[in-house]
Design a protein around this nucleic acid. Structure first.
Lengths: 99, 99
DNA sequence: TTGATAGGCAAGTCGTCACTTGCCTATAGT
DNA sequence: ACTATAGGCAAGTGACGACTTGCCTATCAA
């Protein structure tokens, strides 16, 4: 369900890359934590809903996984989809994309 | 000028990834060659102008370089921007993006 | 139970993107 | 010179993406 297109499209947005930066530096943050840190450290003043939608896109792309605990929802980065992202063109190998 | 955003945004399109596939398999093709091969081998029946605009985007992202010779314009893939594309999140290092 | 906190849902706006359409320039062959 | 080939420029269209707005649900503390 998470295709190569979903992956690149998720990475195509500046705010979403910043979210991954933030989770790389401190994994397992909640939505409000991410909002605060994006605002103070990266001058990204998007609304909570905007960030929430970005997190949905990242999760659909398989780049983050979520864990619910009470009224909190923690977001964890998953770098596995990123490992072989560019090898498709970096070595002369057959490629298989169904999208 | 070619920012990280340009790079990911260029890769976010399916047809542009196919163009890179095609140039990986056979480098230095002209616009018409790429059009023909995309149509026959990848079932992509976009117009010549559409493909031309895709090539512009790829060139702006630094993923292809062009070489003019008479009335022909040859397109060559440049994989250098792809080499360190995901390392930003694959290892806990400081990241520097100005976009 | 009441209020505050953390998050979700859905419609709507606005800009960007992929693509088309129509016409124009330049090189090469005859 | 004339024609075909390779490519370019620019305006227009339709759809998608990022973001907002308004309201709703759920959990926890007092």
């Amino acid at each position: 369900m998470a295709s190569v297109g979903d992956l690149f499209q998720a990475l195509a947005d500046h705010t979403r890359r910043r979210i991954l930066d933030e989770l790389t530096e401190r994994d397992g943050q909640t939505l409000f934590e991410i909002c605060g840190r994006l605002a103070t450290k990266h001058q990204i003043a998007s609304s909570r809903q905007a960030i929430s939608q970005h997190l949905d896109v990242l999760e659909a792309a398989g780049l983050i996984v979520t864990r619910r605990q009470g009224r909190y929802k923690f977001h964890h980065i998953d770098v596995r989809p990123l490992r072989s992202i560019a090898e498709r063109w970096l070595r002369p190998e057959p490629r298989q994309e169904t999208t």
